[in-house]
Design a protein around this nucleic acid. Structure first.
Length: 577
RNA sequence: GCACCUGUAGCUCAGUGGAUAGAGCACCGGACUUCUAAUCCGACGGUCGCAGGUUCGAAUCCUGCCAGGUGCGCCA
């Protein structure tokens, strides 16, 4: 099983060593996809300068020593010194054949790392918004991908389950009754509960006093207060899980590691920072000042770990968290899938942790910055009346729209089947839209675009998979039974086979760069290569049984790759649509 | 004021220092007696924000500027 780019890299590297001496055997041969061949090696151009020779001469020396007869049909020097390489059809076919037999479809199994991934992180008693949706969806795709690459991924749902608002929330819960309909709002419409509590807090001085007293009791560990607090969380969990189930996200209660988890460690964090001279008192608060972080008027900006009232901040919690992930979870790499505005906070927090010795250089931390989600007007997504959009309402609308489309196009299917398809398509469309653009840029949320059957959308990929399944259904065959042999004659067959070889490399790339949109781009290209093939190359009706067998094998490999690829993104491909 | 992010076709977005910068949508023109036309094929469409620099070669790296977004002392 081989990544053509990797194979060619090795061959060209050997040629470099043979032609220019062992010192050059380690040079990057700079293999890139080419518009004039399958791949091109660009190393000669860079080396020419160093060697004081003409690039074309260097290229021809490389080509003279290049042993690729088994892999390439044609090697050609062109332009200023590019080495264009065209793969042999039988080599591509052979690799595709290997792919068919490989349960991992060419995806490498990497040395196992412990990777805590922090994502989703909704707040108790608050509606999840589209921002949470995106970190949840992107995080889940990364988690699935990293696991498939062989890593020990530890999901960490750092929910907001602590802080001053809980005083008012607990008091409100007490007033409405723990088992009241009002309390049940937490399961379905948490903002309604939150707003009601806030309303009382803002309008009733008496309530506000009790709320503040309740915060003190909560932080002091009062048993009854803790019980009520736990009740709030349990109710909120119902809501979270409903969202996760609807979305098809892998998070469970076992992955909850909310802010409150680290309460016991906060005092120690502060004490150690102070003892080590990393933190200092400033205006009554305990602060860490770091070089290079200045705010307005050039003042140094602090990372506050203990407020002047003695309370701790999320910086303190995050420090305790990173220490826990290193010491207890034995993290090799820590991934934070969190909104882009937190970038500076993470930089300061990590630098502090490194200074304190809690975050060794050997442990890499990555902030997968999630950009804002905008409406079609280019502003932060809100309803027409200006309120934030309820996440469940958003998902319902996606499914509703998909339902209408399915009803229109597939009146032949029964209602239950159509409803299942509509769920897969509606939810898949939303998730895919979140994933298909680079995670750190803002993106425009547009139902019409994401549900379109054309373009780089979830439904387009699902449709490609559904058509393939339809072929096998029609032929009374199982994809597993399509074993080839694969032989390539038509250009569309060749293109499809070559595209299939790209799956392993792109999955590895996503694991390295934590950029799921690259997998989306790959799958879209693959689906396009398939539909092209589908138009030009009859499978079941192929005139020749050998051709038919080969095409069936290509089709089966495409199906598995699409389904696996979509699965890594957390998108389900329905049997038919 | 400082820091970070963004600026690529009318719109939404890709783009590993490599040749003539790519998709999709929209618009225009074609293809259904054929495995799902919810599709496919073709045409049109560009001062890669601007100006310098590095390089054999820059959308990509560096500097400055312009525009938009975000963050910047006791919320998380």
């Amino acid at each position: 099983m081989a990544d053509p780019q990797e194979v060619l890299s090795q061959r060209v590297r050997s040629a470099l060593g043979a032609a220019l001496g062992a010192d050059y055997a380690g040079t990057d041969p700079v293999i890139r996809p080419s518009q004039f061949a399958d791949y091109q090696a660009n190393a000669a151009l860079a080396l020419a300068k160093k060697l004081g020779r003409k690039p074309r001469d260097v290229a021809s020396d490389i080509v003279a020593r290049l042993e690729v007869d088994d892999v390439c049909r044609e090697v050609e020097i062109s332009g200023p010194g590019f080495v264009n390489m065209t793969l042999r059809d039988d080599w591509i076919a052979g690799q595709a054949q290997d792919l068919l037999a490989d349960p991992r479809l060419g995806v490498p199994e990497q040395p196992k790392q412990n990777i805590p991934v922090d994502y989703s992180a909704p707040n108790v008693a608050k509606e999840m918004h589209v921002g949470h949706l995106r970190t949840t969806v992107v995080g889940d795709a990364l988690v699935r991908t990293l696991e498939f690459l062989g890593h020990n991924v530890i999901r960490q749902n750092h929910i907001g389950d602590w802080g001053t608002p809980f005083g008012m929330l607990i008091e409100h819960l007490l007033e409405v009754g723990e088992h009241s309909a009002d309390a049940d709002l937490l399961k379905t419409d948490p903002n309604a509960f939150y707003q009601a509590a806030k309303e009382k807090f803002d309008t009733s001085e008496d309530f506000a006093v009790r709320a503040r007293r309740r915060v003190v009791a909560l932080q002091g560990g009062d048993a009854e207060t803790l019980r009520l607090w736990q009740g709030l969380i349990d109710l909120s969990k119902v809501y979270f899980n409903k969202v996760y189930t609807t979305l098809g996200v892998t998070l469970t209660d076992a992955d909850l590691a909310g802010e409150s988890t680290y309460n016991d460690a906060l005092a120690g964090v502060c004490a150690e920072l102070e003892r080590a001279g990393i933190a200092e008192q400033s205006e009554g608060a305990l602060c860490v000042f770091l070089e290079g972080f200045t705010g307005r008027e050039g003042n140094p900006v602090p990372l506050i770990v203990r407020k002047s009232d003695g309370g701790y901040t999320y910086a303190t919690t995050d420090l305790a968290t990173v220490r826990y992930r290193v010491e207890e979870l034995k993290a090799d790499r820590i991934v934070y899938v969190v909104g882009a505005p937190q970038a500076m906070h993470f930089q300061m927090m990590w630098e502090t942790a490194r200074k304190a010795g809690w975050l060794p250089e050997s442990v890499e931390t990555v902030h997968v910055q999630i950009g804002n989600v905008l409406g079609t007007d280019g502003k932060i997504l809100r309803t027409r009346s200006g309120k934030p959009i309820r996440l469940m309402a958003l998902l319902d609308e996606a499914v509703e729209r998909a339902t209408r489309v399915v009803a229109e196009n597939r009146p032949d299917l029964d209602e239950q089947t159509r409803a299942a398809i509509a769920r897969d398509v509606g939810i898949g469309a939303v998730k895919y839209a979140d994933l298909s653009v680079s995670h750190d840029t803002e993106y425009v949320f547009d139902f019409d675009r994401m549900l379109a059957l054309n373009g780089n959308t979830g439904p387009y990929l699902q449709y490609a998979a559904a058509r393939i399944r339809s072929i096998f259904r029609k032929g009374g065959l199982a994809p597993e039974d399509a074993v080839g042999p694969i032989a390539l004659a038509e250009p569309a067959e060749r293109e499809l086979a070559l595209a299939l070889l790209g799956f392993g490399p792109v999955v590895r790339l996503v694991g390295d760069t934590l950029e799921p949109h690259r997998l989306c781009g790959y799958l879209f290209d693959l689906a396009q290569a398939f539909t092209s093939f589908y138009e030009r190359c009859p499978v079941l009706k192929a005139e020749d049984s050998t051709v038919r067998g080969s095409r069936l094998a290509l089709t089966a490999a495409t199906l598995r790759t699409l389904v696996q690829g979509l699965a890594l993104l957390g998108v389900h491909a329905p049997e038919r649509m």
